[in-house]
């Protein structure tokens, strides 16, 4: 499989070993934490106790931690919140971004310069945390799931990436459809988008990961911890090691306060990891194919 050019010297054995070792160590540094977290979450309580902490060597298998999490308490709810916000948010962001990227991709169309300028300007100056908070508050969105979606729904970067891609589709393609009287929307959905599956998948992944990982928006805008997304639950229960209860005294008994427990904590970490680990391989191939590179090039 190797593609060594003819002029290049044959790699020496020590050189190859060093390189292989370095790459293995790098891969291990990335994978090892994920491995022990998964292993601990799947280990029976006895194994975790015996290890005195994280489990490195597998011994026994138990889904007890996950059963606990999905028994309908705070965590179950936060997973549903995160999934919902991610699904709705990604849909909103992707639709708006694709539409705008296409709408602004025709050279010479009316007003596209000022509108594009307005979008690019958001790169240079962010509005600041306090005014944003006051705006969301005055719109009555505090404790609304929309506060986790709307303020960051449009990423100027993603929009510019998509627009650059659309502009590289040969003009003749949409033009021939225009001559036949197709509407712009029809051209976008029937012709341009099917040609842009890779970039759409990547931008969709960026948005979805952004929503799934969003943490700070919820800190700012969500006071009611029954509406907390998973990242906040992970922060309180796993990182800070505090017990999980719901606000409101009457609620605590029924929701079942969750005392800190290593296997359960690690199971929460795995829950936060899983969607990323599952979607990533499907989109990952596009990174190496140059979608991002093209984006970086503007």
């Amino acid at each position: 499989m190797s593609t060594r050019p003819a002029w290049e010297e044959r790699p020496s054995l020590p050189g190859r070993l060093t390189k292989g070792l370095t790459l293995s160590v790098i891969a291990l540094i990335v994978l090892f934490p994920i491995y022990i977290v998964m292993l601990t979450s799947l280990s029976p309580a006895a194994t975790v106790n015996e290890a005195g902490g994280l489990v490195v060597v597998p011994d026994g298998f138990s889904l007890a931690a996950y059963r606990e999490l999905f028994s309908g308490g705070v965590v179950t709810r936060s997973v549903l919140v995160s999934l919902g916000v991610t699904a709705v948010g990604t849909a909103v962001s992707l639709v708006c971004t694709v539409l705008a990227a296409y709408g602004l991709s025709r050279p010479g169309s009316v007003f596209h310069r000022p509108l594009l300028f307005m979008i690019l300007l958001t790169f240079l100056f962010t509005p600041g945390m306090i005014p944003s908070y006051l705006l969301v508050k005055s719109l009555g969105l505090i404790d609304s799931y929309w506060s986790l979606i709307l303020p960051g729904a449009i990423s100027a970067f993603n929009l510019v990436v998509m627009r650059a891609f659309f502009m590289n589709i040969p003009e003749e393609v949409p033009d021939s459809a225009r001559i036949d009287g197709a509407s712009e929307f029809r051209i976008l959905t029937r012709i341009v988008l099917p040609m842009s599956k890779g970039v759409t998948a990547v931008v969709g992944l960026f948005y979805a990961v952004g929503y799934w990982n969003a943490f700070f928006n919820a800190i700012l805008y969500i006071n009611d911890n029954a509406k907390w997304p998973l990242q906040l639950v992970m922060r309180q229960y796993v990182q800070q090691g505090q017990a999980l209860t719901l606000n409101g005294a009457s609620d605590t008994a029924s929701a079942g306060a969750l005392p800190p427990n290593l296997a359960i904590q690690m199971a929460i970490v795995v829950l936060a990891l899983i969607p990323v680990l599952f979607i990533y391989p499907f989109v990952q191939k596009h990174f190496t194919k140059g979608v991002i590179i093209g984006a970086v090039k503007g």
Partner: peptide, 23 residues
């Protein structure tokens, strides 16, 4: 049609980026 397509994104940016900038 193109302008109409750009409208949702522009609107979101105007409300959640430019209004707080004035704020």
């Amino acid at each position: 049609q193109l302008l109409l397509m750009a409208l949702p994104a522009i609107g979101l940016l105007a409300v959640f980026h430019y209004v707080p900038m004035l704020g």
